[in-house]
Computed example of a mutant assay.
Amino acid sequence: MAPPKTHRSGFAALIGRPNVGKSTLLNALTGEKIAIVSPKPQTTRNRILGVVTRPEGQVAFIDTPGIHQAKGELNRYMVEVALQAAEEVDLVLFLIEPPASEKPEVSPGNRAILDRLQKIGKPTFLVINKIDSVPKSQLLPLIDLYRQEFPFAEVVPISAREKDGVERLFHTVLGHLPEGENVFDEDMLTDQQERALVAEYIREQVLRHCRQEIPYSTAVVVDIFDESEREPRPGTPPNQLGGLIRIAASIFVERDSQKAIIIGKQGQMLKTIGTDARKSVQRLLGAHVYLDLRVRVEPRWSERPEGLKKLGYD
């Protein structure tokens, strides 16, 4: 009689500098858009849970804000969120990207993160993302360099965007987790509430459409989430959107000049943001969506603890 297969489960945190692809990797691992993605740094502001369940085990991945030199209350909050996540998990995935130059180096920012991970003392993988952007000959010197800096448990090169190596990464992570039953139900994908995901989808469109200086001063709060008409009408095909959800949300900025930019000439920018956000939200919720967006000014909210708390960063 064959011995029963080992079942493993646990938590793994995605840690790294801004824009190394942590959110793209979380989405690739789960197969769903749980975290918003943008080319602008510091897109992720909170920890985001994505659960991957297979017959052989379950991994709860935690996406975190990029670790950077924090200036201001919001930035300090984001860095603290990331470092606290690293302390609470079974395993840390430290993401880097290959340097632009052929000569490998450990940047001061990555060295500072490694110093903190050394103190935390959790088993750590080196995950080299975006390997599709460089010749493979550049990877071995980079791996050797980082192995001299830190005792990594594993080194896994991947391309999260192309999903290259992502499945191997999952199984390697699972093999390092403790034996045990699932922590979450098999059908659980994330702990993010629909309201929170809707707010992030709206902020994603602000990041996409607005000028460089605007997104960092922007937060989104869902004021109304009315599901009273959500149930599909009788006879609605299962592959079509069913019912209606009415959503009202506020886009907060810090200055009147920023409000004017988001609204745009004759309201055109806000209309564009709303149209694209509504399409994403409808796919998320599987229902028709009426989306009402307002732009409000909350002076210096990102610099004040009470401002952070009011807009959900507490």
Rank of each mutant, 00 (worst) to 15 (best):
E88R: 14
A13F: 04
K119T: 15
S107C: 00
V206T: 01
T30L: 10
R296I: 00
V222S: 12
Y201E: 04
P39S: 06
L241E: 12
L244W: 13
Y216M: 11
M188W: 11
T64W: 02
S159A: 08
V106F: 03
V222A: 10
R230F: 12
R17V: 12
Q118P: 03
H209R: 11
K33Q: 14
I273S: 00
Q282C: 08
E56I: 04
V59I: 15
I113M: 07
E102P: 12
R17F: 08
A100C: 05
S228N: 10
I67L: 15
A60W: 01
G10I: 05
Q69I: 00
P237N: 08
A35I: 11
I214W: 06
V297M: 04
P55H: 05
T53G: 02
P123D: 09
G50H: 00
P4D: 04
F125V: 14
L91N: 09
T44G: 09
T24I: 03
T24E: 05
V134W: 09
E88K: 14
V166A: 04
V295D: 02
I273H: 02
I34M: 11
K22Y: 09
E179A: 15
E102C: 00
T53E: 01
R233C: 01
E149T: 08
I263T: 02
V166R: 03
I273E: 02
M269K: 12
I15T: 05
F94P: 02
T172C: 00
A199I: 00
Q205I: 03
L29P: 10
R45Y: 10
F61Q: 03
S302L: 04
I202W: 02
E162M: 09
M269Y: 04
R47Q: 15
D164F: 15
K265D: 09
R304H: 00
I262A: 12
H209T: 05
Q240D: 11
T218W: 03
K33D: 06
E227C: 14
F11G: 07
P238Q: 12
E194R: 10
P305C: 08
L25P: 07
I131W: 07
D292R: 09
N19L: 02
Q42P: 10
V297I: 13
I34Y: 11
V92D: 04
